[in-house]
């Protein structure tokens, strides 16, 4: 097995966006509204880090303050944008015609293809905590589409659950990609298997986990390649890990 990189939580690109000044049209919300964004890969002003891994280009660990904070309607093409809501409520509005409110465990897949706009807003009363994942599509300029899923942490506890990818119950995607989540009790050992030519980007949402032999704390991540079986050992009382398997 080879480790492409280990990225500790504090080593990511940290941005703080406010709804006034240069970003006033981009960032929604009242004047005290704040978005914090920790980027695992180069994104916008943060360009001194890692460019991507496989087809992953953006992995953003974001928090929107309450009261309407978020991103105003803005355009996209091609990227398949996924959002995994960890806490609070996220209201997603897009030009396909979807208006959706997602809460902890909910996630969406917005394939922007030939063009789509979206707004991402926290109109709730507590922080919205969201992981944003952008991947290159299998084909450019596909008709845009929106799909939504739900991860039930209680039902899924103690096993690796596929959220996105070619598995029953998961959202389909036009890319060699699989997103899974594991909420595991301390000491539990879980095995992720993947085909030749794939890599794994694993991100610890909560707790601690030993992944491919490396100890990772909350919000640390690792990219692994040249291995078809990877062991994930929960080390915290309730370790919560997001696994993104990608073609390389």
């Amino acid at each position: 097995m080879s480790v492409r990189f280990v990225l500790r939580a504090g080593e990511r690109g940290h941005a703080r966006l406010v709804s006034t000044g240069p970003n006033a049209t981009y960032v929604a919300g009242h004047p005290d509204g704040v978005i914090t964004r920790a980027s695992s890969f180069n994104f916008h002003e943060y360009q001194s880090g890692i460019a991507g891994f496989g087809c992953i280009r953006v992995f953003g660990d974001e928090v929107f303050s309450p009261g309407g904070t978020g991103y105003n309607m803005h355009p996209h093409h091609n990227f398949i944008i996924m959002a995994f809501v960890l806490g609070g409520a996220l209201t997603h509005v897009n030009t396909i015609g979807e208006v959706d409110t997602l809460r902890a465990g909910d996630y969406y897949l917005f394939s922007t293809g030939s063009g789509g706009k979206h707004a991402e807003l926290n109109i709730g009363r507590e922080d919205a905590r969201i992981i944003y994942l952008w991947v290159l599509p299998g084909r450019l300029m596909a008709p845009p589409s929106y799909l939504r899923g739900r991860f039930d942490a209680a039902a899924g506890a103690g096993r690796i659950t596929c959220l996105v990818g070619d598995e029953p119950g998961a959202l389909p995607i036009d890319q060699a990609l699989k997103v899974s989540r594991l909420v595991g009790a301390a000491g539990g050992r879980h095995r992720h298997r993947m085909p030749v030519g794939r890599g794994l980007y694993a991100f610890v949402l909560e707790g601690e986990a030993e992944i491919g032999g490396t100890m990772l704390a909350r919000r640390d991540s690792i990219a692994l390649e040249n291995e078809q079986t990877i062991d994930v050992v929960a080390r915290g009382a309730d370790s919560d890990v997001l696994l993104v398997e990608t073609r390389l």
Partner: peptide
């Protein structure tokens, strides 16, 4: 070949 904007996905 196309050239993809990493900010939004616009392609040239």
């Amino acid at each position: 070949k196309k050239y993809l904007c990493l900010g939004c996905g616009f392609s040239y």
